[in-house]
Simulated scan of single mutants.
Amino acid sequence: MITVGLAGWGDHDTIYPSGTAAKDKLKKYAAQFAIVEMDSSFYAVQPPERMARYAGETPDGFGFVVKAYQGMTGHLRGKPYYESDDEMYGAFRDSLAPLREAGKLTAALFQYPPWFDCTKENVRLLRETKRRMEDFPCVLEFRHQSWYAPEFREKTLAFMRDEGWSHSVCDEPQAGSGSIPIVPEATSEDFTLVRFHGRNIGGWNQSGNANWREVRYLYDYAEDELEEWQTILAGLSEQSASVGVIFNNNSGGHAAGNAKRFMSMLGLTVYEPPVEETPEQLDLFNL
C-alpha cells in the first residue's frame, strides 16, 4: 500500500478554500491525503491532549509521521527545556500515545543533522535512542553522506534492520557531504518512508542565511522526475507492506500540486476541493 501526503497541513494554501480557519485545516487536509508529517513536534513536544484532538479530527486509516523533537536529534541550540534525557523521551512517548492508541501513529521520524556522521559514538546514540523508543515505530533519516559511503552502506542498512528502524529514503540535492543519495532499500517489512525534499542544489547548503527556509525546499518536480520514482516505489512496495510518501518541497508552494500529480500517476484517488464561485455582481444600470 502506498500513501501520499505533505509535510505539515497548515501552509498549503492551494488545498483550502480561502478564509479557512487554522482549526479547520486538518479535517480538510485529511479529506485529500491519507498521511501527513507533523513538523511542529520538532520545535516542541506536543501535549497529549492536542494529539488526541488531532486523532479525533481525522478518519480511520489516516496516519501521522511525527518528527522527533530537536533535543533528541542534536539540532537543539540553547538551553534544553528538559532537565534530563529520561524526562525528554518520556514526554515524547506520552505525546505519541494518543495517536498510537487511535491506530493513527504511522511512525516517529528521527531526522539527524548534516554533522551527524557515521562514527561508533553515533551508532551507540542510535542504539540508545531506539531502546528509549521501544514499542513505538521509528523511522531513521540521515543527512550525512558517510552513512552510505561504499564501505558503510550495507552495514548501515543491516544495523537499521537489526535495531528495528524503518528507512527514510530521500530525494534531495546532491550537494556534498551534507546530503545523501537515493538508497532504495527497505529495512522494515512493515513500513518505509519516502521524503521528497526537492533538488535545489544552490539552496540546500544555505542554512547560515536569514532566508534559508525560503530557498532550501524551493523546487517543482517535473513529470519525468516523478516517473523515475514510480519504478523505485514499485520496488519498495515489494519490500515493505506500507510505503508513505511525503512531499516537503513547499518553499514555493509546489508540494501539494506535486503530490496530487504523483497520486494520479500512481493510480490513487485524487480529491479536489470544490471550486469557489465568485458571486455575480448586480449591474444597476442594465435592468
Rank of each mutant, 00 (worst) to 15 (best):
L76C: 11
V194I: 15
D135A: 02
W147Q: 01
T106E: 08
D24E: 14
T20A: 12
Y82C: 13
E83C: 11
D39Y: 05
A21P: 05
K28L: 15
E49H: 12
L105Q: 05
R161V: 03
D60M: 09
L109A: 04
T278W: 10
T119E: 09
R195E: 10
Y54N: 03
D24H: 12
I246T: 03
K25V: 09
D85A: 15
L26Q: 06
P47G: 08
F247A: 03
G203W: 06
R143P: 02
D86R: 13
E223Y: 04
L99D: 04
Y219Q: 00
T231E: 13
R131N: 06
D11T: 15
A259C: 10
N248M: 05
L193A: 11
T156I: 00
M72Q: 11
L226P: 02
Y217M: 01
K120C: 05
E83D: 15
G71D: 07
P114I: 04
W9G: 00
Y89E: 05
D94Y: 05
L157C: 00
F64I: 07
V194Y: 02
W229A: 00
S40M: 11
V245P: 00
R53W: 10
P48A: 11
I232S: 01
K28R: 15
T106C: 05
T119W: 10
L126K: 00
S84E: 12
P17W: 13
R213D: 04
G178H: 07
Y271Q: 13
S207R: 14
P114R: 12
P113W: 07
D162T: 05
E57P: 00
A256I: 07
S188W: 04
F136A: 01
R153V: 01
G8S: 06
G176A: 14
A31Q: 15
H197Q: 10
C138V: 03
A22C: 07
